[in-house]
Computed example of a mutant assay.
Amino acid sequence: MKTIHEHSIYKRLAAVICILTSMFLVSCEAVDKTQTTSQISDQTLYAGEIQEADVFIDIPNLRQYGGYTCGTTCVQMLMNWMFPYQGDLNLATYEEELGTSEEAGTPPENIVTYFKENKIQIHEKEKRTINDLIFVLDQGHPILMCIQAWTSSEDGYNTTDSEDSETYLTEGHWVICIGYQKQKSGYVFYFNDPACVGHCIMDEDDLDQRWIDMDTNGKVYDHYGIEIAETGDSYNPNGVFYLE
C-alpha cells in the first residue's frame, strides 16, 4: 500500500505529464488547422476571382434568410444598387411589397409589377440565349433570373422528367447575373447569389441546363430573365455613409 506522500508525488508527476501532453496536442492541432485552412483556401474554397472577369457589374451583395427569400433579396440588392440610400430598406419591407410568401416565394409577375410601379426600366423575356446574355451584360445591365439551385448530381435538379412531380423543377432559385469571362472552353458567368457569401460563377453549359424554373401554379419559365435596363451610377462600392 502506498503512503499519502507517495500518492502526492504520483499525482504531481501525472499532472506534469498531462500538461506536457496537452501542450503537445494543442500545438499539433494548431498546425493541422493552419494546414487545413490553407488547403481549403487554395484548393477548394474559391473557384476564381472577380478581377478575372471581362465584364463585372458591382452590385451590393446581400444574404437571404430562410429558404424562400432569394427573390426578395435579389430585388433588395438591385434597389440598393440603383438607389444606394433611398433603396436601403430592410428585407421585411421588400417582402411585404413583393407579396413574398413561404409557400410561393416571390413569383416573377410580382417582381415585374414592383419594378414597373417604381418606374424601373426592365425587359423581361423567355428563351434567352447565351449570346443574348452577353449582349445585355455588355450594356452594363444585370439580369435577374430563376434557375435550379443545385448542380446536376444525385441530389440535384430534374429538368426533364415532368412525370416525377416530386423532383421536377422543384429547386427554384433567384440569382442576378452580373458579368462574364470568355475562356477557351466557353463563357463563365458571374452571379450575385443571395444564398452565398460573396459572388459565384457558373460555366455556360451548366447555366444552359439549369436556367429553367416553375412556379406553384405549374407555369414553366424557360431561360427567363428580367433585364434591368438601368445602371447603378449612384452606387460607389468604395463609398461610405455618415452614421447619423
Rank of each mutant, 00 (worst) to 15 (best):
D208C: 08
W150E: 10
H141I: 07
Y85E: 15
E95G: 14
D205N: 10
L133G: 13
L243Y: 04
G156K: 14
L137I: 12
Y157A: 05
G172R: 15
G99F: 10
Y235E: 02
G225F: 02
A53G: 02
F191P: 09
I130Q: 06
D203G: 00
Q139T: 06
I111S: 10
N236T: 04
C74W: 07
G179A: 10
G232K: 05
T72Q: 08
E103N: 08
D203W: 01
N90V: 07
V240P: 01
T151P: 02
Q181P: 03
V31N: 13
K182N: 13
L169M: 05
T129N: 15
K182C: 06
E96Y: 13
S101R: 11
L91F: 01
E154V: 02
T93L: 05
D54F: 07
L20D: 00
Q43P: 00
E227D: 06
T73A: 07
K182Y: 01
M23Q: 05
N118A: 02
G198V: 07
Y114N: 13
C70Y: 09
F24E: 08
T159D: 05
D138V: 02
G87N: 09
T170Y: 01
L98Y: 12
G67W: 08
T44C: 03
E227G: 04
L137M: 11
T44E: 06
T73S: 08
V26C: 10
T159E: 05
V197G: 02
E227C: 04
M214G: 03
D54Y: 05
T151H: 07
S162H: 06
I4K: 13
G140K: 09
E230Q: 10
Y94L: 08
G218T: 12
L243D: 07
L243Q: 13
Y168Q: 04
W174G: 03
T44K: 02
Y10L: 15
D88N: 13
L20M: 14
Y221G: 06
H123P: 00
F115Y: 15
E154S: 09
S22N: 13
D164V: 11
G71Y: 10
E171W: 14
Q139Y: 00
N217A: 09
I134P: 09
A30P: 00
M202G: 03
K184A: 15
M145L: 15
T167P: 00
G105E: 11
G105H: 11
S162M: 11
Y180E: 06
F189H: 08
G87I: 11
T72E: 07
A149D: 08
Y190K: 01
Q209M: 00
D222R: 07
A14Y: 07
V112R: 07
D222G: 01
G179L: 12
E96L: 01
E95Q: 11
N192E: 08
T100M: 07
I50T: 01
E166L: 12
Y221S: 08
D58V: 14
C200G: 06
A229W: 03
T129E: 15
I147Y: 09
R12M: 08
T160C: 02
D203Y: 06
G172P: 01
C196Y: 12
F189L: 11
